[in-house]
Amino acid sequence: MSRIADAAVAAVGTRFRLHGRGLDGLDCVGLVALALRADGYAGAVPTGYSLRGGDWGLLDRVLVRVATAEPGDVLLMAAGPGQVHLGIRTAAGFVHADAALRRVVERPGMPPWPLIGVWRMGV
Results as ranks from 00 to 15, higher is better:
68 T>Q: 15
71 P>D: 01
1 M>I: 12
106 E>Y: 00
25 G>T: 08
104 V>A: 08
55 D>E: 05
51 L>R: 13
115 L>E: 00
47 T>D: 08
121 M>K: 12
10 A>W: 01
65 R>E: 09
47 T>C: 02
80 G>F: 00
99 A>H: 12
88 I>P: 03
76 L>K: 07
33 A>F: 03
11 A>Y: 01
83 Q>R: 15
18 L>S: 11
34 L>T: 13
120 R>Q: 00
5 A>K: 01
56 W>Y: 11
121 M>W: 09
102 R>Q: 14
4 I>K: 10
21 R>N: 10
61 R>T: 01
80 G>E: 00
63 L>D: 02
121 M>L: 14
93 G>P: 02
75 L>K: 10
50 S>N: 11
72 G>S: 08
30 G>S: 13
64 V>Y: 04
41 Y>E: 04
25 G>S: 05
9 V>Q: 13
53 G>S: 04
84 V>D: 15
111 P>T: 12
67 A>Y: 01
8 A>R: 03
119 W>K: 01
4 I>G: 01
74 V>A: 10
14 T>L: 05
112 P>K: 09
96 H>N: 12
16 F>N: 01
68 T>D: 15
26 L>H: 07
23 L>T: 11
8 A>Y: 10
115 L>C: 09
8 A>V: 14
63 L>F: 12
102 R>M: 12
103 R>H: 11
51 L>E: 11
